[in-house]
């Protein structure tokens, strides 16, 4: 029972990361109908930024988050303005596929050149502190990251629901023609959206750095997980991505507890294939 609870807590934590990645991916998909294949690399850049701020400037990983957000937003906005918006004009899915996959490779290799392929970690005075809640023990960094994930998720929902810019993002996502009719500057919303998506991945990276190794390929598995979250949660659905991410995290930790780590990925993928098939069957029946 204790192990089970512990696994649930860990599952929620890792699921929170998948959610954040999936939601960022889905905001971008909703607005521009493109899949951002370099989303995991944005997380990787966020991790390296946090690592650099900590090892060269002595900045606490959690205090570096505002800086990471600003840099990642600016990077995303720049990529959107100079590369993605012009490619959207070609209306070619292949162009955008190559563009975002290519950017991912570029960032991976840049990280390889700058930081070498070595695994890096950062330690702080509180890295090894733990907190106990009854039977569940959690390291302090994981606890802080968990709270951070909750804050960011709530803030994101609030932003999309109540702020004028958030409403415009939803408007463009739901009906681009309607958005133009009411005078929304679509290109500006594209820039904000992509910047926001990258910033969210950057935050996920910063929150991850204290208990996860940093290396140039670290984004790949998160890119992949974010894609699963988007497919299962529904393309363009923010709430869907949130729940799918949490579910994926729980499923991973619980299946490695129950069927063992060897069959973890098998269980996860079989479950999701079953979900997709069942959902499709329900959809067809309703017609």
């Amino acid at each position: 029972m204790e192990i089970f609870l512990q696994a649930c807590v860990n599952g929620l934590l890792i699921g929170g990361f998948y959610s954040l990645m999936g939601m960022g991916q889905n905001i971008i998909f909703g607005v521009m109908k493109i899949i951002n294949f370099c989303h995991g690399e944005m997380l990787m850049i966020g991790m390296y930024l946090t690592f650099v701020f900590n090892s060269y400037f002595g900045l606490d990983p959690y205090l570096s988050i505002p800086l990471v957000v600003v840099i990642m937003f600016a990077l995303g906005a720049l990529i959107q303005h100079t590369l993605i918006t012009p490619s959207l004009g070609t209306k070619s899915f292949t162009n955008l596929l190559f563009l975002t996959v290519g950017l991912g490779m570029l960032f991976q290799n840049l990280a390889l050149v700058i930081f070498s392929p070595n695994y890096r970690t950062i330690t702080t005075s509180y890295s090894s502190k733990t907190l106990s809640f009854g039977p569940v023990t959690m390291s302090l960094p994981k606890m802080i990251s968990f709270i951070g994930l909750i804050i960011v998720t709530v803030a994101l929902f609030w932003f999309l629901k109540y702020t004028p810019t958030g409403k415009k993002i939803r408007a463009v996502s739901q009906n681009p023609i309607g958005a133009e009719v009411v005078g929304i500057n679509t290109k500006r919303i594209y820039i904000i959206t992509y910047g926001l998506g990258c910033a969210l991945a950057g935050i996920a990276g910063a929150l991850l750095t204290l208990f996860y190794m940093v290396y140039p390929m670290v984004g790949a598995s998160f890119s992949f997980k974010a894609l699963i979250v988007v497919v299962v949660g529904g393309f363009g659905s923010i709430q869907g991505a949130f729940f799918a991410g949490i579910f994926l995290g729980l499923l991973e930790t619980l299946s490695s507890l129950i069927v063992g780590p060897t069959y973890r990925d098998l269980t996860v993928f079989v479950t999701f294939i079953v979900i997709l098939v069942v959902r499709q069957v329900i959809k067809l029946r309703r017609r």
């Binding site: 409403k167 939803r170 408007a171 739901q174 009906n175 023609i177 009411v182």
Partner: peptide
């Protein structure tokens, strides 16, 4: 060309 998942009020507000 409405924003179908937004409320009537939000659509008008837009």
């Amino acid at each position: 060309q409405l924003f179908t998942e937004m409320s009537v009020y939000e659509n008008l507000e837009m």
